[in-house]
């Protein structure tokens, strides 16, 4: 049975997934390096290590993400949208609406019966509502992005940020820190501001059916729960795999399809 791989080089993190016969046998996430090719190599090496195989064992590899054109070892590149759609469908076969928050963008798409991408909206013009917003705010608060997500549950009187602009919100957050507002209340306000911005994008595609979230921010419970309130629908949690690897997983799934097609032809 052939072994395939997908590699997703994002602006903040890079991911690699290795599959064999429709099963994930290895995966790895790293913080992206300045050069996309270095990120790709490091992510793949980690995934190879976790699968216990070597690079030569991989028959077909697909690259995706922001840095996909710079990956040296791929056979083909595919758009992030397509990969996230595929990955989301694999993780949650009933997924009809997918929200993917990346390090520098936010996308939302609807999938048809066959998992093809239909209606779709994206923001990559403004840092607000993207992973970058949370990254900047976590740095100001002096917590990790994971810790930031957990602050919402502990908040007593969440603050309200006057602006969703990352620059203005940052100034606002510094003001709150200096005036002694508890970090939980500030964190909750940040997660809410993030969710507000994402909800606008999600509502613009008229979400239907089961909603699924991919990308690292899907692991931020504060953002996810507020987003559910704002769009008035539940967001299904990932159980089969880490939502952050959805793009790389989708790439690997497409690689597997290619392998099958080549065999039959």
């Amino acid at each position: 049975m052939s072994i395939v791989a997908g590699c997703d080089v994002g602006s903040l993190t890079s991911k690699a997934v290795i599959m064999k016969a429709g099963r994930i046998i290895g995966s790895h996430i790293i913080k992206s390096k300045p050069r996309p090719q270095d990120s790709a190599n490091a992510a793949l090496d980690g995934a190879l290590l976790s699968a216990g195989i070597s690079k030569e064992d991989i028959q077909y590899c697909i690259g995706t993400g922001y840095g996909r054109e710079k990956i040296e070892f791929v056979d083909e590149v595919v758009s992030e949208i397509k990969c996230h759609g595929k990955g989301a469908r694999w993780m949650l076969p009933s997924a009809e609406t997918v929200i993917d928050i990346g390090g520098q963008d936010c996308k939302t798409m609807k999938l048809d019966k066959d998992g093809n991408v239909g209606r779709f909206a994206a923001n990559d013009k403004c840092a607000s509502g993207t992973g970058r917003f949370l990254e900047v705010m976590a740095k100001v608060l002096g917590v990790s992005i994971d810790e930031l997500g957990k602050l919402s549950a502990k908040a007593k009187e969440p603050i309200t940020l006057a602006s969703t602009c990352t620059v203005w919100a940052q100034a606002d957050v510094i003001k709150y820190i200096n005036s002694g507002v508890p970090i939980e209340d500030i964190g909750a306000g940040i997660n809410t501001a993030m969710a507000v911005r994402v909800a606008i994008l999600v509502n613009s595609v008229k979400p239907e059916g089961d909603i699924f979230m991919t990308g690292g921010v899907a692991k931020n419970i504060g953002v996810v729960e507020t987003l559910e309130k704002l769009i008035g629908k539940r967001i299904k949690r990932a159980r089969k795999a880490d939502p952050q690897i959805a793009g790389a997983l989708g790439a690997a799934l497409i690689a597997e399809e290619r392998g099958k097609r080549e065999k039959t032809s």
């Binding site: 013009k125 403004c126 840092a127 990352t166 620059v167």
Partner: peptide, 17 residues
């Protein structure tokens, strides 16, 4: 290409590099 302060700053850093 970015008009956003945050994204333009990233572009500036890579241009400097």
């Amino acid at each position: 290409s970015s008009q956003c302060v945050i994204f333009a700053e990233t572009e500036v850093v890579s241009l400097v590099n």
